[in-house]
Design a protein around this nucleic acid. Structure first.
Lengths: 153, 153
DNA sequence: GCTCATTGGTTGAATATACAACCAGTCTTC
DNA sequence: GAAGACTGGTTGTATATTCAACCAATGAGC
């Protein structure tokens, strides 16, 4: 006990216990798994997540996608540019002149369908890495987070 | 029930159950917490993680840092450019002519020390978000991952 | 001692991510 | 109904992240 907080203690604690370092390195590892599996289909996990979210929601407002994925609006805006260029998503103006409505194109749907088995493979591998219990817990945390706030800033 | 695997099923499963989407969105949320807390100190959580890792290891080979943080070597290479420019880290050639040895400068140490309370604040907030049990589990998973492979590619 | 494979880092090119500042609609309030 | 607040998106700028290709140094076989 004691010598309340010298620099070495601080370093040790930040290196060993940081929640961000854990999450971030696991995310890097897991992202790699999915991206590798998806590479043959010409999209990455980030794009698949957006595509699946839009397909799932259906006629999705950009703002809504930001909220469920907890993404910054400027990030999504730019991701969408690429995905629209790829022909996977199309957008139209909403009733409210500010809002953009997103839809997955038929080409986008076809891609989701084709990539599904690869996604499943990656999902299985990620499952082995994390363990079933952790995955369930993460799901619960995500739900909590979603219920709290909108991330759009 | 039936119709084994139509497109809507695939979409629902990918949207609701994807491990990557969970990890990635939580990481975005948690990263935001730390970055907000650290902003006044002129570094972000990614940089703090590298800085703390180097300080913790001491005379760290780049390759080693990649391994413990599960970062790609090209990512670290570029991050280091910025951090050396900021004067937080200095590098020297190792015995082996290929290897680079990293050290935290005294200015880097001072920064770590100064930023520690802000990091603690963020850590506390992240703890509330995830819950103690999840954090412990993540820690275990990280250890497993580290024991498995080196990520350097 | 050469060739060849390996290893550690850097660089080109691309995407993801966020903050801040901005802009264009909409809503509120007087 | 005009001024000002609010909301949803885009754009400037910067960092993070990766893959692929490269380069330099080392190590292994012959």
């Amino acid at each position: 006990m004691s010598t309340t907080g010298n620099i070495d203690d601080s370093v040790r604690i930040m290196a060993e216990e940081c929640v961000a370092v854990r999450l971030r390195l696991l995310t890097r590892a897991v992202t790699r798994i999915y991206n590798k599996a998806l590479r043959p289909y010409g999209l990455n996990i980030s794009q698949l997540n957006v595509l699946a979210a839009v397909a799932y929601i259906g006629a999705a407002k950009q703002q809504k996608v930001c909220q469920v994925l907890h993404m910054h609006k400027s990030t999504l805006s730019r991701d969408l540019t690429r995905m629209q260029a790829a022909g996977w998503i199309r957008s139209e103006a909403g009733e409210d002149g500010r809002v953009t409505i997103l839809r997955v194109t038929s080409s986008g749907k076809k891609l989701l369908e084709k990539a599904f088995p690869a996604w499943e493979e990656a999902q299985k591998e990620a499952g082995k890495l994390l363990g079933e219990k952790d995955i369930v817990n993460l799901g619960r945390t995500v739900m909590t987070l979603r219920s709290k706030a909108s991330a759009g800033s």
